[in-house]
């Protein structure tokens, strides 16, 4: 036998022999001795081996990233498996190899029972000056309750309850021209059927532009297809209708227009909100035909002036924007 081989064999014997030292039976222990569990130990070793294999896989995948498809998924799977095997190994160690023990700690015995009774009596007798204790309790309850209510009041700002004026104001006045997003006034001849247009009030101040009611969606329908209810009669300018662009459900901007090319065979024209697909019929004054919106889309009356420009004739037929408690009691305000 050669010397290097001797050295390797003795090193191996030394390494493997270390773990096999038996505890002497007379040794005093705190943790009770349990029989060894070679199957569990083997499982832990196998899981740890699998974990290192997976981690090695991660390194290899990273190295050959250029020539592999779906590298992200492979990297994630390999590192995920490595962590999973490691966790599984620890779980097996915890359940099968480490001894577990349940200990219940008892409550300490009550200290000075006599003194505690005295304190209870003192407390009891201190209240005898209150002759109307029931009223006191009521007053205390009232004060505490109102204070709690006051603390909760700022939450009202999440929805309109006290200050609804800002929601009702609109920048529209009689005679105000409709312009596009670049400020060019709209001529009635610009508005074609099957197309839809974004419009704003001409020359509005910056605070007016921020109002929800500032933006409009313009559509043109064949005049014989328009069937407005009586209170909206005359709101259209020869087939041009100007609706608020803000959906009455959650206040999203209406950006979809269903525009049938051939009306007899296809669904009717509709203004649709992309958020929850509330669908409004522009021909009948913005009535809801589908979706969660609870009230009609507000319509702005418009007319064509002598130069052909579109101008507002007044204000919307109802409050613009998302609905709130009691919204139907209000009207749009200039």
């Amino acid at each position: 036998m050669s010397r290097p081989r001797n050295a390797i064999v003795s090193a191996l014997v030394l390494l493997l022999g270390r773990g096999r030292r038996r505890p002497s039976p007379d040794e005093r222990r705190i943790v009770p001795a349990l029989p060894p569990n070679p199957a569990a130990e083997l499982a832990v070793l196998a899981l740890l081996g699998l974990s290192s294999l997976s981690a090695l896989g991660f390194i290899l995948i990273y190295a050959f990233a250029g020539s592999l498809p779906d590298v992200t998924q492979l990297l994630g799977a390999s590192i995920g498996l490595a962590l999973l095997f490691l966790a599984a190994a620890l779980v097996v160690v915890g359940l099968k190899l480490v001894p577990t023990e349940e200990v219940a700690e008892e409550y300490p015995p009550q200290e000075h029972p006599g003194e505690q009774e005295v304190i209870a009596e003192v407390l009891d007798e201190s209240g005898t000056r209150f002759t109307r204790s029931r009223f006191f309790k009521l007053g205390l309850l009232g004060a505490g309750g109102t204070l709690g209510l006051a603390i909760l009041t700022p939450a009202v700002s999440f929805g309109p309850l006290f200050h609804v004026g800002d929601f009702l104001r609109t920048p529209w006045r009689r005679g105000r021209r409709l312009v596009d997003e670049h400020g060019r006034p709209y001529n009635a001849s610009d508005i074609e059927e099957n197309d839809f247009y974004l419009a704003f009030p001409e020359g509005s101040s910056s605070s007016q532009q921020e109002q929800m009611a500032a933006s409009l969606v313009l559509v043109r329908l064949p005049p014989d297809k328009i069937d407005l209810p009586r209170h909206l009669a005359g709101y259209d300018a020869h087939g041009i209708l100007a609706y608020s662009r803000i959906c009455t459900h959650a206040g999203c901007a209406i950006t979809l227009y269903r525009a049938p090319l051939f009306q007899p065979d296809e669904p009717k024209p509709a203004l649709v909100c992309p958020c929850h697909y509330s669908t409004f019929d522009p021909a009948t004054g913005g009535t809801v035909t589908f979706g969660p919106a609870g009230r009609d889309l507000p319509l702005l009356p418009v007319y064509e002036d002598s130069g052909g420009y579109l101008r507002a004739k007044g204000n919307f037929d109802g409050p613009v924007g998302p609905s709130w408690w009691g919204v139907r009691l209000w009207k749009a305000q200039p």
Binding site: N194, P260, E266
Partner: peptide
């Protein structure tokens, strides 16, 4: 603007 799609003008 085929079927119910709106057409989009140059504008």
């Amino acid at each position: 603007g085929p079927y119910v799609m709106p057409k989009f003008s140059q504008h």
